[in-house]
Design a binder for these strands. Structure first.
Lengths: 228, 228
DNA sequence: GTTCCATGTTAACAATTAATTTACACAAAA
DNA sequence: TTTTGTGTAAATTAATTGTTAACATGGAAC
């Protein structure tokens, strides 16, 4: 199967820059999308669901920094790569950018070659991620099917809510392995999102209740694991 | 249990640079190792098995680039993070560095703050949790598996409480070696936590009781060791 | 636009399990 | 014998999780 190309969203207020970067990334086989300012960047991101977002720091409406903060606050962009692009090469803004959760920081004047190299380096590193995220898991008589969002036990379908399903799918992805509460939080809720202590428990309880069988084991002080 | 710190190997021929980088990374909680040239860097890497290697490009004996190429050729360093450090800020060498498989490229004069931020950013992204931490230990017919949080004796699973498990895992990590009571305390309870005299004994007793076999030997006046 | 419902989150409390301390018995070393 | 250190059981305290109900929110149905 042909791999889907990596999707890159580029946000900059200068059309020339958008074009030259797009051109060079396209040539490397990436699929590119553009936005003219911070607000548009966030909107476009929601729609195109990019693998990488390149943000100019100085943009009208919303700066790149602000856009970054908003994006990082949304669970679906928690793990999206972000590169800042800026004329400011001073170190404090660089540090600030990296601490906001950016993955790289490239100073203008940009060499497109350097930018492309850095993009490649980032993707090379991330490449290890699981492609079969929506392949159905089968554990004995249970099927966890992300494509249809359904759990089947002995061919009986049991509907789960989104979070419940995600949680079960995560645990079921490695049966027997213990998932720390922190792992669960960062995987399902995202690294920056903070929810209360009891949130995971409540979802676990609902899953146990709906499935009717005890397939989730508590490891006190550690986390939970899937075990039939 | 305290998490094992990330290990960083720094290679540079200027002692001052080694020292200042080490100091700053230590302060962030990293464990650092040093090498004075490319050859030494490769040798040290084999021994200390670092999570990240920072290579100065211009070094005697072997340059950072050469060292990088050698390391990338060895299976065990295929996925190790590499950052180049260099005075050459020209773009061709930067591109070459990234294409050799480096993950980042920082130009001198270095701001240690920027370097630290970039190191943090890399680790944040690569959630390569220290694999050693949850690798299962096998000692004869006993398996101590932290990823599943179970102890198996002859394929029979025995559930242990958190502290009990951590304690057994610690002792089992070096069978035969005696762990001082103070070592056990600082490893499992942390250096700041103070608990009573009998706490360790009681946990040891519970482990012995649950496992049913005598695999922990008391060395009076010294500590405990794992011995099947 | 309003109402209704499913979902997600939180808070309060109960239940459970784990961790620690206490008290004392026992063994080895001084 | 005295001292010191360790093993054990029971009692106590602390920590973690389970449960329920209430509230918030957003989308679907009306």
């Amino acid at each position: 199967m042909e791999p889907t190309p990596r999707r890159i969203l580029i946000a900059d207020d200068e059309p020339d820059i958008l074009e030259i970067i797009s051109y060079n990334l396209n040539r490397e086989g990436y699929e590119t999308f553009t936005a003219k300012n911070g607000v548009e960047a966030v909107e476009r991101a929601k729609v195109v669901n990019p693998d990488l977002i390149i943000l100019d720091v100085m943009m009208p409406k919303k700066t790149g920094m602000e856009a970054c903060q908003i994006l990082r606050g949304m669970p679906q962009f928690q793990n999206t790569l972000i590169i800042f692009l800026t004329a400011m090469s001073d170190e404090t803004s660089q540090i600030r950018g990296l601490e906001l959760g950016a993955d790289d920081y490239v100073s203008k004047p940009i060499s497109t070659k350097v930018l492309v190299s850095r993009v490649n380096a980032l993707f090379r590193r991330i490449n290890t991620k699981n492609e079969d995220d929506d392949k159905a898991l089968t554990i004995e008589n249970m099927v966890i099917d992300p494509s249809r969002f359904v759990v089947k036990i002995d061919d009986v379908e049991i509907p789960l809510a989104k979070k419940e399903f995600e949680l079960l799918h995560l645990l079921g992805s490695k049966p027997g392995r213990v998932f720390l509460r922190t792992e669960i939080l960062s995987q399902i809720w995202g690294k920056e999102v903070i929810v209360g202590d009891r949130t995971i428990d409540v979802h676990i309880r609902k899953i146990r209740q709906k499935l009717g069988i005890d397939c989730i084991t508590t490891v006190k002080g550690v986390g939970y694991k899937f075990e039939l």
